[in-house]
């Protein structure tokens, strides 16, 4: 009986590693089997970088990384994330090359990589996942990887450019780190 209760208690809780820190959640109150990962991250933990815009997997604004791969957090149940490693945009380092490239994008002919900025965290995280897997993508590969994200302001040209610039930054940092006397 006691053993069953203990098992039941464990089953009624989840453990997720968010931005490097393990977090425990008990099911109950506003956390149920149908609670989405997006809700948990925003409302319980205050990681409001990700946005819930469509809440049905159609826009990409809620994208986070699960074990390094991009997932739509509105389509992942919190209980499904049990035991997994989640990274939100808040978990990126301050000098993340993708964030930098999106923020800086301004060269002639491409516009900026963001206007209203609502879709931006989703694009950044999708791009981050792409570059984790493929550090030097072609333009076609960028379009393929980011084709599931909507930017209603229409900054696609600037976004694609920013991803390629981020790729160049990653390569430059790697070269700098590899070179004798280069920065770590």
């Amino acid at each position: 009986m006691q053993k069953n209760e203990a098992a039941s208690s464990r089953e009624r809780g989840i453990r997720i590693r968010v931005n490097g820190q393990w977090r425990d959640f008990a099911l109950g109150d506003d956390l149920s089997a149908s609670t989405t990962l997006a809700y948990l991250l925003r409302e319980r933990l205050g990681f409001t970088g990700l946005k819930v815009s469509c809440d049905e997997g159609a826009c990409g604004a809620c994208t986070v990384l699960e074990d390094g791969a991009a997932v739509l957090s509105c389509m992942v149940l919190a209980v499904e994330a049990d035991g997994h490693d989640i990274q939100t945009i808040e978990g990126l380092p301050a000098d993340d090359p993708v964030v930098e490239a999106f923020a800086e994008q301004s060269e002639p002919g491409f516009g900026t990589a963001l206007q209203c900025g609502y879709c931006t965290p989703g694009f950044v995280m999708t791009a981050r996942a792409l570059l984790n897997a493929n550090p030097s993508p072609t333009l076609a590969e960028v379009k393929e990887a980011l084709g599931g994200n909507i930017c209603r302001c229409g900054c696609y040209a600037g976004i694609a450019r920013a991803v390629l610039n981020a790729s160049a930054k990653i390569a430059a940092r790697k070269a700098g780190a590899a070179a004798p006397g280069g920065r770590a």
């Binding site: 925003r42 409302e43 205050g46 409001t48 970088g49 990700l50 946005k51 819930v52 939100t88 945009i89 808040e90 990126l92 301050a94 993340d96 964030v99 930098e100 999106f102 923020a103 800086e104 994008q105 301004s106 060269e107 002639p108 900026t112 990589a113 963001l114 900025g117 609502y118 931006t120 965290p121 950044v124």
Partner: peptide
């Protein structure tokens, strides 16, 4: 031709919108 003044705030996910300012 230069970056937006809110570029860093938005690209890093720190910019707050109404839904973010009104969480529980």
């Amino acid at each position: 031709y230069r970056p937006k003044i809110d570029g860093q705030e938005k690209a890093s996910g720190k910019a707050k919108y109404a839904d973010d300012l009104t969480i529980k």
